[in-house]
């Protein structure tokens, strides 16, 4: 009358379905995946501290963009007093020379799809490296 076996079976199927994301990634060993952006060799410092760049490089780039395009100010004097030409292709890619191994690592992981490269030139792609 109470169909205990059917209910039990249903519960088991339900549990398997609900926990699917967990055991699927465990089985596929993706659970601990961490993107690994490749840092340029022989370079110690970015234009600002690594912590700042990790968290807020997009803010810096937006401000750089406005400084160059709107105000005609093309030189960045960093908080430590170093001078850099403000240029995505020239300065950023000048060190981080492989976009696929650096930018794309985290951007792909979090599904960020910035359209910088629709116009700015990815010199690693034109050299035939990267993707």
């Amino acid at each position: 009358m109470y169909d205990g076996r059917k209910i039990l079976l249903g519960l088991v199927i339900f549990l398997i379905a609900v926990t699917f994301p967990f055991w699927f990634s465990w089985v596929n060993d993706k659970s601990g995946f961490v993107p690994e952006p490749k840092l340029p060799e022989g370079e110690e410092n970015c234009v600002e501290s690594a912590e700042y760049m990790k968290a807020l490089h997009m803010d810096l780039l937006n401000q750089w963009r406005n400084a160059v395009v709107r105000d005609g100010r093309r030189v960045y004097v960093s908080s430590s007093g170093n001078r850099y030409e403000i240029s995505l292709t020239g300065t950023c890619l000048g060190c981080h020379s492989n976009k696929a191994e650096f930018c794309d690592q985290c951007h792909d992981y979090v599904g960020a799809n910035p359209f910088c490269w629709d116009c700015h030139i990815d010199t690693s792609a034109s050299r035939g490296e990267g993707k």
């Binding site: 100010r73 030189v75 960093s78």
Partner: peptide, 17 residues
């Protein structure tokens, strides 16, 4: 003559302008 940018940085005009 300078725009405040980033964590205490500044954007300035290039001296060659």
């Amino acid at each position: 003559t300078a725009t405040d940018v980033g964590p205490g940085g500044k954007a300035v005009e290039s001296s060659t302008t």
